[in-house]
Lab assay of single mutants.
Amino acid sequence: MTEYKLVVVGAGGVGKSALTIQLIQNHFVDEYDPTIEDSYRKQVVIDGETCLLDILDTAGQEEYSAMRDQYMRTGEGFLCVFAINNTKSFEDIHHYREQIKRVKDSEDVPMVLVGNKCDLPSRTVDTKQAQDLARSYGIPFIETSAKTRQGVDDAFYTLVREIRKHKEKMSKDGKKKKKKSKTKCVIM
């Protein structure tokens, strides 16, 4: 069974824990209790493949930012979460993405942009803004509501699919490099 290491990042209060708990335990946590770091595991079937999701729910508070490099190193894919009623959390996505790329030393890291709290009427981040940002990053965008469960499975499952595509691409690139290195030079 394939294991996928997913990391949920975003500013404090955007609903990272609520999304994760909704996926794992099928219930909505409405009281806000700032996370330092929590880890969850769940076995699911995605596109006919049974897999184990190892999900790291991270601290959004700035005082825990020193811990970010460590979990970013171990993560295979990242859910970059903002709240649709919090423009600052949307603007912060850029910083999370840049930090992930720096730590992973790669421009090509599996990510999904997630606009959470889409059940709320007080939207300050337009869907088109988020779609445009995701398009500019070359990553999928999904709106979710941890409260109603809308888009929750889709967000995590899409990230797994992005990781699969990335692994497939990397193995193809690896095979191309191996083929090239088999060419021999004969000096007579």
Rank of each mutant, 00 (worst) to 15 (best):
S106I: 09
T158A: 12
E98G: 03
S145P: 00
D119W: 04
D108G: 06
T74K: 07
R41H: 02
I36A: 01
Y137T: 08
H94W: 13
T127P: 05
I187L: 11
Q150K: 07
L6W: 11
C118S: 09
V103P: 03
L113K: 14
R73D: 13
D173C: 11
V160Y: 10
K184Q: 10
R68P: 14
S39G: 04
V186K: 04
G48R: 09
L23S: 13
Y40E: 00
I55P: 00
I142T: 07
S171M: 05
G151R: 11
E98F: 03
E37D: 14
D38C: 00
E62F: 08
K104I: 13
A155S: 11
V112W: 02
A155E: 05
T74R: 04
Y137C: 06
L56K: 01
T87N: 06
T35Y: 00
T127V: 06
T148S: 12
E3W: 01
V9N: 02
Y137I: 13
D105F: 13
V103A: 08
M188L: 03
R102L: 08
I93S: 04
M188I: 05
L159Q: 12
P110T: 02
E49W: 05
Y40T: 00
C118M: 12
K42P: 06
A155K: 11
V7Y: 08
K180M: 07
C80Q: 05
V44G: 09
K175M: 12
D69K: 03
G115S: 08
M170I: 04
Q43L: 05
D154I: 04
A59I: 00
P140S: 03
M111E: 01
D47I: 01
V14M: 13
N86W: 01
D33H: 01
S136F: 09
V114M: 09
F141P: 01
N116L: 15
T87G: 06
P110E: 01
Q43P: 12
D132A: 05
V14R: 15
I36K: 00
Y71F: 11
I187K: 12
I100W: 08
G13S: 12
R135E: 12
H27E: 13
T124E: 11
G15S: 01
K182W: 03
R41Q: 02
S89A: 09
I139R: 06
T50C: 08
C51Q: 13
T158K: 09
L133Q: 04
L56N: 13
F156I: 10
M72W: 12
M188N: 13
